[in-house]
């Protein structure tokens, strides 16, 4: 609207020159816009766009960074089908995502609901909940490793006190290492997503709740029919972020278990690093990265489609 009004008041100049002025103006605005994004874009281009583009090409090459690359077509992808390490890493990554995404979603929503009330010291508790997110990841991993210590760790001591007879071996046990990592990562991330949910909760008009209450809806019904639908844009955003974050998990695993015991927590991003940087097989490593990218892209596109369909309803 603001754009249209001045045009009406200026006397209309004759056809051709008006269009060129208009064009110049558009170009000028575009350039100004570019100049603002340029510093960021150069960094992005140099350190993200070019490497990502290169990865697409590298996936079809064999290259050890020292000699000249060799075209191998789809060999790298064929190799993946037979590679047990890739299968293990893919399963583990799916396991991690399958645990991390729903648990973080539920935990952060619950936290946000609890901390959205007018209770004494709510700011303090919100800060407490956000704290894990800003704590150094290495510190988090080291401390949780201690907590999960099978013999002298507080987690197992607590379980024993509750009467659990055979406590899990956590990071020393192939079956429990991944759950241990998931618990740690949920604890770390929930504060961040809680903040997003808190913001989402502020956008739901209080009148809806009042109306629901007048209609005799109980707390559960109000949550199910007012809060949750009102939070849908937030949930969608959180879900997409969580998906991307879960599939590219690397740091926490490297510090906490380094893929062990055995290969029980080996994830795709780690395999990419191992095959590429460490073993110098950049082609194969890029191919794995490409598959990882395709998985995340597919899931995200599906999520967007589902969201659009619901929006349309």
């Amino acid at each position: 609207m603001a754009l249209a009004s001045p045009q009406k008041t200026t006397p209309a100049p004759p056809g051709r020159s008006s269009r060129s002025v208009q064009r110049r103006r558009v170009r000028r605005n575009t350039l100004i816009g570019w100049s603002f994004i340029l510093p960021n874009f150069i960094g992005f281009a140099l350190f993200t766009l070019v490497p990502v583009g290169a990865a697409f090409a590298l996936a079809f090459l064999e290259w050890d960074a020292a000699s000249s690359p060799e075209w191998v077509g789809l060999d790298n992808f064929e190799r993946m089908l037979d590679d047990e390490n890739f299968q293990v890493a893919l399963t583990n990554t799916l396991f991690y995502a399958g645990g991390h995404i729903p648990l973080t979603l539920v935990a952060s929503l619950a936290l946000a609901l609890v901390l959205n009330r007018k209770i004494r010291g709510v700011k303090f508790f919100r800060t407490v909940a956000f704290f894990p997110y800003i704590t150094s990841l290495v510190a988090v991993a080291v401390v949780w490793n201690m907590l999960f210590n099978p013999t002298s760790g507080p987690v197992n001591q607590g379980l024993e006190a509750l009467g659990v007879s055979s406590t899990p071996g956590w990071t020393t046990d192939t079956d429990w290492a991944m759950p241990a990592v998931i618990i740690t990562s949920v604890w770390r991330d929930m504060g961040y997503y809680m903040v997003l949910y808190l913001a989402g909760l502020q956008t739901i008009p209080a009148e809806y709740y009042e109306a629901a209450r007048v209609d005799g809806a109980n707390a559960w019904q109000r949550f199910w029919h007012v809060t949750l639908p009102g939070l849908r844009p937030t949930t969608f955003f959180v879900l997409v972020m969580l998906t991307v974050q879960s599939f590219k998990i690397l740091d926490l695993i490297v510090v906490m278990t380094d893929g062990g015991p055995g290969r029980s927590t080996l994830v795709l991003a780690q395999l990419v690093y191992r095959e590429g940087i460490r073993d110098g097989d950049y082609g194969y490593s890029s191919a794995i990265a490409l598959v990882l990218f395709a998985i995340v892209l597919t899931i995200t596109v599906v999520q967007f489609r589902l969201n659009e369909r619901r929006d349309a309803r």
């Binding site: 080291v142 490793n145 201690m146 999960f148 210590n149 099978p150 013999t151 002298s152 071996g169 956590w170 990071t171 020393t172 046990d173 062990g260 015991p261």
Partner: peptide, 9 residues
């Protein structure tokens, strides 16, 4: 034991 030694670095 190995597990504890690893977990405690």
């Amino acid at each position: 034991d190995f597990g504890t030694a690893t977990a405690q670095q």
